[in-house]
Design a protein around this nucleic acid. Structure first.
Lengths: 112, 112
DNA sequence: CATAATAGTGACTTTTTTATCCCTATGAGA
DNA sequence: TCTCATAGGGATAAAAAAGTCACTATTATG
């Protein structure tokens, strides 16, 4: 392999991108919540412990830009907004089950 | 489910722990490198782009404390240190393949 | 004698990420 | 009229993560 190729490859390691994409502090809780179905911002707020509105919005926005979530705004009053998982988001959830199992291993190991 | 149970459960979500464990900036590159076999710190430094010694050591230390890596120090001069994957570390690698595939999906999708 | 290679850390700065606080706007209902 | 619910953002502060620089120590090599 040419060194240029290796350099280019390093820059777009799919796993690094994947991990960065899910690394925000509230993103995993968001994923669990929304895996149950469409959710409004206020529902996230109630469902996730002590997240601030501002911060929640930031994370939701990033996830939307990353193509994991879709945002739907209804022209009503009071305003209504709903987030849902995209196809890619659903595939992410599938990939995360394995990692969840690994997390259990890690927890069990620390208990011993 | 009691609300106390739910609260307790939220505090130890295995997936959150797993994601936190691999979230350091250089941890994925470290995992790829060491998946090929034992590695010395200097090899990591050469193998991974522009990591600083200091920062690399921090990440290695965390991964060691998390039980992913084992550190072996030889009483030689010049000093020799070798890191290797633990069993749990190897299982982590297996779990990461799926996430790597998902990362590819994400990349392909953005290209379109 | 100077330099390079090995591994490591203390003190500090910079950058990034999270959190806090206070605003906007609208309609329903007490 | 006052309060609550809805959703959102600007300005700023605090905390966490990453990066920088300079130093320790030892042996081999030029």
């Amino acid at each position: 392999m040419e060194i240029q190729e290796k350099a280019a490859e390093n820059k777009v390691c799919p796993l690094e991108i994947a991990v960065n994409t899910i690394s925000g502090k509230w993103k995993i809780p968001i994923v669990w919540q929304i895996n149950e179905g469409k959710k409004r911002p206020s529902e996230f707020l109630r469902g996730i412990g002590k997240v601030d509105r501002r911060v929640l919005n930031q994370q939701l926005k990033e996830m939307e830009q990353d193509g994991i979530l879709t945002k739907e705004s209804f022209n009503e009053l009071p305003p209504r907004v709903e987030y849902s998982l995209t196809d890619i988001g659903k595939k992410l959830v599938e990939a995360l089950w394995l990692l969840n199992d690994w997390g259990k291993l890690l927890i069990d190991k620390k208990k011993v």
